[in-house]
């Protein structure tokens, strides 16, 4: 039964994919747009094959992954503890939240000039941009999630004499777990989008830089290959979050 389902899904997805490629092929065949502005699937495939056989491709992926993971991990280890503290203890944290919100609405890309001035060129500006992109939405989400924990849970914790450490590890983290992972998933999406742009200006390698380089070298077919890679990688990474979400226990709030 499950096998049939699997193949069914596979069929539908391939069919959809096939339709997209066919439409693309038709458009480029009919030369609706000039070749250099709208590369044909054929050219893309050739470029892709060449790319996959180059070291540069993999090293670009590694660089981008390195930066986004570094920045993301920094954000996780700072925003979550800080957010929990603020959510629990600061009654008048509204003004703090406003400050965070203010920064959240500044496009991370607007920080690029500063990132380059302060951190020069390389890994650091990209990591900085990632942190700016993911820290603020995350901390706001953590604060809200902590505030949403029902009072009764805290009462139970007090009754059973939970230590501070227990409060954090056994009450708060499990209680906000689902919201946290969902929020992280969103922040990751933002970071992934942002790093491509950040690398275009601030780095000398990485996926974003490679796209920009290809575009400046007037090789849009290479650029498209990288774009496809970015999309695929994004999905694969997103699946990590989805997987972790399925592994959460119980529904957060029983009705």
């Amino acid at each position: 039964m499950k096998v049939i389902l699997f193949f069914k899904l596979l069929f539908y997805r391939s069919a959809l994919f096939g339709i997209l490629i066919s439409v693309w092929w038709i458009i480029s065949y009919m030369k609706v747009f000039p070749e250099y502005a709208f590369p044909s699937p054929n050219n893309i495939w050739l470029s892709f094959v060449k790319l996959v056989n180059s070291f540069r491709f993999y090293s670009d992926i590694m660089y981008s992954l390195y930066r986004i993971l570094f920045g993301f991990l920094v954000t996780i280890f700072t925003a979550i503890p800080l957010g929990v503290l603020i959510g629990l203890y600061l009654r008048s944290s509204k003004s703090l939240i406003t400050v965070f919100n203010f920064f959240r609405f500044i496009s991370p890309l607007a920080w690029i000039p500063f990132a380059i001035l302060w951190f020069q060129i390389g890994d650091k500006p990209a990591i900085f941009i990632i942190i700016m992109a993911s820290f603020f939405p995350l901390i706001i989400s953590v604060i809200a999630a902590v505030r949403n924990i029902p009072e009764s849970f805290f009462r139970v914790a007090k009754e059973y004499q939970f230590s501070k450490r227990d409060m954090f590890m056994k009450l708060i983290l499990p209680a906000i777990n689902r919201e946290l992972i969902t929020s992280l998933r969103i922040c990751f999406g933002i970071s992934w989008v942002v790093i491509i742009a950040a690398e275009m200006v601030g780095s000398q390698d990485g996926l974003g830089y490679a796209i920009w380089d290809a575009r400046n070298g007037l090789k849009l077919d290479v650029a498209v290959c990288y774009i496809i890679t970015i999309g695929v990688l994004g999905i694969l990474l997103d699946n990590i979050f989805q997987y972790c979400l399925t592994k959460t226990r119980g529904n957060v709030y029983a009705k």
Partner: peptide, 20 residues
Amino acid sequence: FQNSSLFPWLSVRENILIGK
């Protein structure tokens, strides 16, 4: 209380044994 204060991420057994 009227409203349940069980921890939704713990099983029945774990909830009962909480703090013990």
